[in-house]
C-alpha cells in the first residue's frame, strides 16, 4: 500500500526519486520496524521471564527442602506438622483441604455460572443483560479478603442454623463463598463461548420448530462446549489457588479429611500462615512453603494442560 502510494507520488512529482533514495527510505523503514518489533518482544518476554523466574525459585528452594525431607514421605505422610518438635511434612492433609474446598466451590460455581451464562446469552433481553453484567463484574472485583470475612461472619453462622454443631471454621462455608467468588469468571467465559456460536446455528434450530429452551440446551450448549469446559477449568484453577477466603474461614489446622463440615488448611492458606512469620527464615519449615508452592503450581499447570486438551478435543468448526 505505502509502496504503491509513494511509487505513484514518485511518478507524478519531478524529479523522480533515485534508486538509492528509495533504498535509503526502505532501510529507514526496516530499522523502525525492527525497533518496534524488539519493543514488542521485550514486553512479551516480561511474562515469560517472570514465569521462568518463579519456577526457578520454587524448584531451587524446594531442592533444599527435599534434601532434608524425602519426596516419598512428602507425598505419602498423612501429617503436616511443621511447628511440632518432631515436624512431619506430608502434603496430603493440605491437598485434601485444597481439593475439598475446591470441590465445594465448584458445586456452587459451575451450575450457577452455567445457568447465568445460558440466561444472559440466550434468554435475557438486552436491557436486562446491561444491568446484570456490571453486577457480575462487580462480584468479580470484590477483594477476596472481603469474601473471607463474609464467609466467616455471615455464611457460616447461617450454616450453623442448619447444622447446629458445625464448627466456626469449616471448609463448607469457605467453599460456598469461594464458589460465589468464582461465578463471574465461569459465567462470563461460558457466556462468551455461547454468544460466539453463529446465529445460523440458532436459526437452524428454530427453523426446525424448536423452542428457546430446546435451542439453548440441545444446540447452543453443545456447540459452545469447548469454551464452556475451558471456563470450568479456569474456575477450578482459581479455586485451587484461592487463598484469602480459605485462610480466613476454613480454619488453619491441617486436617486429613474430605469432610467439608470440618475445618482444615489448604496449601495456599499454609503458605500465607508461614509468610505471616510463624517460622524462622532458612529453617526446613520455612523451605516447606516452596515445596507446597511447587505442588500448587504443578496442579495448576496440570489443569492448564487438561484445558488445552479439552479445547482441542471439543472444538467445533461451525
Amino acid at each position: 500500500m505505502r509502496e504503491t502510494n509513494s511509487g505513484a507520488a514518485a511518478l507524478m512529482s519531478q524529479p523522480p526519486l533515485t534508486v538509492s533514495d528509495r533504498l535509503a527510505r526502505k532501510a529507514l523503514r526496516n530499522f523502525k520496524e525492527r525497533v518496534i518489533e524488539l519493543l514488542l518482544l521485550g514486553a512479551a518476554s516480561v511474562s515469560v521471564l517472570t514465569t521462568v523466574g518463579i519456577i526457578w525459585v520454587l524448584v531451587s528452594e524446594s531442592f533444599n527442602f527435599f534434601s532434608n525431607v524425602s519426596i516419598w514421605s512428602f507425598l505419602t505422610d498423612t501429617m503436616w506438622t511443621p511447628l511440632f518438635a518432631e515436624p512431619r511434612y506430608g502434603i496430603l492433609p493440605l491437598l485434601a483441604g485444597t481439593l475439598t474446598t475446591s470441590m465445594v466451590a465448584l458445586v456452587v460455581a459451575i451450575p450457577l455460572g452455567t445457568t447465568i451464562a445460558i440466561y444472559l446469552s440466550e434468554f435475557a433481553r438486552p436491557a436486562v443483560r446491561e444491568v446484570v453484567k456490571p453486577f457480575l463484574e462487580l462480584l468479580g472485583g470484590i477483594p477476596t479478603i472481603v469474601y473471607g470475612y463474609f464467609a466467616l461472619m455471615v455464611v457460616i453462622p447461617l450454616l450453623q442454623l442448619l447444622i447446629p454443631d458445625l464448627s466456626g471454621f469449616n471448609m463448607l462455608g469457605a467453599g460456598i463463598v469461594m464458589g460465589i467468588a468464582i461465578i463471574p469468571y465461569v459465567s462470563s467465559l461460558a457466556e462468551d463461548a455461547m454468544r460466539a456460536v453463529p446465529m445460523s446455528m440458532r436459526e437452524g434450530s428454530y427453523a426446525m420448530g424448536a423452542t428457546k429452551l430446546q435451542t439453548a440446551f440441545r444446540v447452543i450448549f453443545p456447540a459452545a462446549l469447548s469454551g464452556i469446559l475451558s471456563a470450568y477449568i479456569l474456575g477450578i484453577s482459581r479455586a485451587v489457588g484461592e487463598t484469602m477466603i480459605v485462610a480466613v474461614a476454613a480454619g488453619m489446622q491441617p486436617n486429613f479429611t474430605v469432610n467439608p463440615l470440618e475445618p482444615a488448611q489448604t496449601i495456599s492458606a499454609y503458605i500465607v500462615q508461614v509468610a505471616l512469620g510463624d517460622l524462622p527464615h532458612g529453617s526446613i519449615g520455612y523451605q516447606s512453603i516452596f515445596a507446597a508452592g511447587l505442588s500448587l503450581m504443578l496442579m495448576t499447570l496440570a489443569l492448564n494442560l487438561v484445558g488445552h486438551v479439552v479445547r482441542r478435543r471439543f472444538r467445533e468448526a461451525y
Binding site: 445460523s200 420448530g209 424448536a210 453443545p222
Partner: peptide, 19 residues
Amino acid sequence: IEVRMRIGMVFQKPNPFPK
C-alpha cells in the same frame, strides 16, 4: 413454533448441528 413445525427451511450455508 406451530408454523415452523409445518414449514422446513434449508439455509444458504449448510448449518448442521454439532451432533
